[in-house]
């Protein structure tokens, strides 16, 4: 275990990224407790004020007098949760689908991967609109619609990786020992997929956060009065000239999260890719 983390101590960018992520998560959870305001509370006395110490509106207020510090951190919570959950959904479906297709090979693999191709070719936003209309607007719909598309790339990555693993001698030895297929998949194939899968997952999280922002921006994602980084930015752009802080606060957090995840992902990829070691 010591050796496993040694690279992390040397990789400054990855370490900084992880520290930044932890701080942001902690701030998002604990920060609102320090503020006297609630997410949907209106301060009639101070509408659209700039960031400052007055009345604890540290990030200022929006056009309705809601506190942006609390709303931004609530948005971070929502975005991080969607990012992690949707990644988890795509991870589960993608790994199972790809591993089964790659291990089976032949016609089954062809059929399963053609399904992936068909989904891939569907216009994404159209697909999400359809889902939102049929399932109704809710965070759960958002998870499902993002996860339902996110697994496609994961399935392709895992399928290719499994195919090359299948011809490794220890997999052939497991077949020669008469182990059941499920056991070979779960105990012999899956652990060896961990590297690429983990790395791709860390790259998926920021992607999902960006998609959420984009969908909320279009009005398909998280809805008022709940906050997400996406709908905060959507409101912010409307007031960009008169109240730039409304755009800057959520943007800064989004950039910080995406950059930090990128650094962690790069570090993991460098460490786990055999060609880089």
């Amino acid at each position: 275990m010591r050796r496993r983390w040694h690279w992390f101590e040397r990789d400054l960018a990855a370490r900084a990224g992880l520290v930044a992520l932890a701080s942001i998560a902690l701030l998002a959870l604990a920060g609102p407790l320090a503020s006297p305001w609630r997410v949907d509370e209106l301060d009639w006395a101070r509408i659209g004020v700039a960031p400052g110490l007055e009345a604890a509106h540290w990030f200022g207020t929006d056009r309705l007098g809601r506190d942006l510090f609390v709303r931004t951190l609530a948005g971070v919570r929502v975005s991080l949760a969607i990012g992690l959950l949707a990644t988890l959904v795509s991870l589960l479906i993608g790994v199972a689908w790809g591993a089964i297709a790659g291990y089976a090979g032949g016609r089954l693999e062809g059929a399963m991967m053609r399904v992936v191709d068909v989904f891939y070719s569907l216009p994404y936003v159209f697909f999400v609109i359809l889902l939102t209309v049929t399932l109704g607007r809710s965070p759960a719909t958002l998870f499902i619609s993002i996860g339902a598309v996110g697994w496609l790339t994961m399935a392709r990555v895992v399928c290719a990786q499994t195919e090359s693993l299948r011809h490794k001698e220890f997999i052939e030895a497991a077949v020669a020992a008469g182990l059941p297929v499920r056991r070979i998949l779960v105990r012999h194939v899956l652990p060896n997929l961990a590297g690429p899968v983990l790395v791709y997952a860390t790259l998926t999280v920021p992607g999902v956060i960006l998609i959420e922002s984009f969908l909320s921006f279009l009005g398909l994602g998280v809805q008022e009065p709940a906050a997400s980084l996406g709908n905060l930015m959507a409101q912010g752009t409307a007031e960009m000239e008169s109240a730039p802080w409304m755009l800057l606060a959520p943007c800064a957090f989004l950039v910080a999260i995406v950059l930090a995840l990128g650094f962690v992902g790069d570090g993991l990829r460098d460490h786990l890719d055999p060609r880089e070691r």
Partner: peptide, 9 residues
């Protein structure tokens, strides 16, 4: 198998 070294997971 031919290379038992590689045949262990």
């Amino acid at each position: 198998a031919q290379d038992p070294q590689a045949a262990l997971a």
